[in-house]
């Protein structure tokens, strides 16, 4: 008798089989169609590159990791602080929230050269670009989250004579946690994008620099390895954020 796979197993197996089928087609069909290896390397060639150059790849991943992590904490930290300031002070919110929102319409790719110009070629400008990318979704979500308390909850706090600070600590901040984590999940992957964009424009190490250099040198196997590594980095951050959220936020039921 055959055993029917449990739904969970099926949920894991299906995408794995899907990915495997695409890799197989890529491995055998693309060379058969005459696509040259310097344009599109086969999956096995990319895997071989990982085996040969893992030390070199990790050396280049390290600055990207440092920049994206620092940008993640800087951007989200400033966003949360500013959201609290905007919620506590109507004057500051009315004066600066629109300015910040307009600032957000500048494409990050247009902003990046300016940041490099100001802060030079070291790690700092990359950290700042990553921070800027993380900043806006978190600011907007936090301002919304801090205002999510219901009117009943606000009235309860008033009847209990709670101060504005107590309302912030005991009601507004806990209420905003789900929205904060929603934006931290976004920031997990976008912080890596920010660091790489910064490295494109001016760096001689890091995954972004590696991507640019191997593109110009037709080292497509190395290019693909760097891209995969960048993607894995975003996924790892996402998993860490999800794990922290799972520990901190109680699920209903």
């Amino acid at each position: 008798m055959k055993t029917v796979p449990a739904p969970r197993l099926r949920a894991v197996l299906s995408p794995l089989l899907g990915a495997l089928s695409i890799l197989l087609v890529w491995q055998f069909l693309m060379p058969a169609l005459g696509v040259p290896a310097y344009i599109l390397p086969t999956p096995l060639a990319v895997a071989q590159k990982f085996a040969d150059e893992w030390r070199f790849l990790l050396e280049n991943a390290l600055p990207t990791i440092v920049e994206s992590l620092a940008g993640f904490f800087l951007g989200n930290g400033v966003a949360v602080l500013l959201a609290v300031v905007f919620v506590m002070s109507r004057t500051l919110r009315e004066a600066y929230f629109p300015v910040v929102l307009v600032f957000n319409t500048i494409p990050i790719l247009a902003l990046a050269p300016i940041i490099i110009l100001i802060f030079g070629l070291g790690m700092l400008p990359k950290v700042i670009i990553a921070a800027v990318i993380c900043f806006f979704p978190t600011l907007v979500n936090m301002v919304r989250g801090l205002n999510m308390a219901s009117s009943n909850e606000m009235e309860l706090m008033h009847v209990l004579s709670a101060s504005r600070r107590e309302v912030l600590v005991h009601l507004r901040l806990p209420r905003s946690v789900p929205l904060l984590f929603a934006s931290l999940r976004i920031a997990a992957t976008s912080s890596v994008i920010g660091a790489i964009v910064g490295e494109w424009i001016g760096a001689n190490q890091g995954l972004g620099a590696l991507i640019i250099q191997s593109t110009f040198n037709y080292q497509s196997d190395r290019l693909f390895a760097a891209v995969l590594l960048a993607s894995a980095l975003g996924l790892l951050y996402y998993a860490i954020v999800a794990a922290v959220e799972h520990r901190l936020v109680r699920r209903p039921g």
């Binding site: 009943n152 909850e153 009235e155 009847v159 946690v177």
Partner: peptide
Amino acid sequence: RLRREVAFVFQEATLLPW
């Protein structure tokens, strides 16, 4: 209110779910 001699029960229980 400041002496907390008045308490209020709303139609919704208004408990903090966390």
